[in-house]
């Protein structure tokens, strides 16, 4: 009973907040509704017993990705009038995309009902082990069966990160960065000295 109630609550809130993401006028509100949608999706994951995925969804999407979204969107200076001006012009294109997506959904559901496709190289005697915890099961798949795919995904991400850094790195000649090690090594006797100047003589710097 309580599972059914929770499911409909999470599902309704996910859909409602997803609708609000695209209908809110303020982009910051959109991002916040997106966060609510992520959160409720995590709730749905918990309901199906995938608590590890749920936590990852919250940590990665809500905790990191959405914060960066919010960070960027908050600093945007958006002119709402010009944003809405293109609505009529772009309406046919949007409609076309929506139709394509709808067709894909229908095809997808139809194909799923026609019969499950075997992904990966599992054999018939490999049945999901329900007694194992989520984390152990995913770990065994990722670091066992799909080790090379997993590692290559990691390398691709690493290359993408290095690429992004290289593209945005500018070595400015006029910048004067701190050298923390040099600052820590500096001792009072290197920087100060006691002098006893004659009256009216001043100090040699």
């Amino acid at each position: 009973m309580i599972q059914v109630l929770a499911f409909y609550l999470f599902a309704a809130l996910t859909i409602a907040s997803a609708v609000l993401v695209i209908t809110s006028r303020n982009p910051v509100h959109s991002v916040l509704w997106l966060i609510v949608a992520f959160f409720n999706a995590a709730g749905l994951m918990v309901l199906v017993g995938a608590e590890f995925i749920a936590m990852l969804l919250v940590i990665v999407y809500v905790g990191a990705v959405a914060v960066l979204f919010l960070f960027v969107v908050m600093m945007l200076d958006i002119d709402f009038a010009s944003l809405r001006a293109g609505f009529v012009k772009n309406f046919p294109l949007g409609l076309l995309i929506a139709l394509v997506l709808l067709a894909e959904l229908i095809f997808g559901i139809g194909a799923y009902q026609a019969g499950r496709i075997e992904l990966g190289t599992g054999t018939a005697d490999q049945v999901p082990v329900m007694a194992e915890s989520n984390i152990a099961a995913i770990g065994q798949l990722l670091y066992g069966q799909y080790l090379f795919l997993f590692e290559s995904a990691g390398i691709i991400l690493l290359v993408a990160m290095v690429g992004a850094i290289v593209l945005t790195l500018r070595d400015r000649k006029d910048s004067r960065p701190q050298n923390i090690g040099k600052q820590v090594r500096r001792r009072p006797q290197d920087a100060t000295r006691n002098v006893k100047p004659e009256i009216g003589q001043g100090v040699q710097l």
Binding site: E51, F52, M55, V58, I59, V62, G63, S133, N134, I135
Partner: peptide, 9 residues
């Protein structure tokens, strides 16, 4: 099971 991840989340 995922107590620590919950705290992190």
């Amino acid at each position: 099971n995922v107590g620590l991840l919950y705290v992190l989340a």
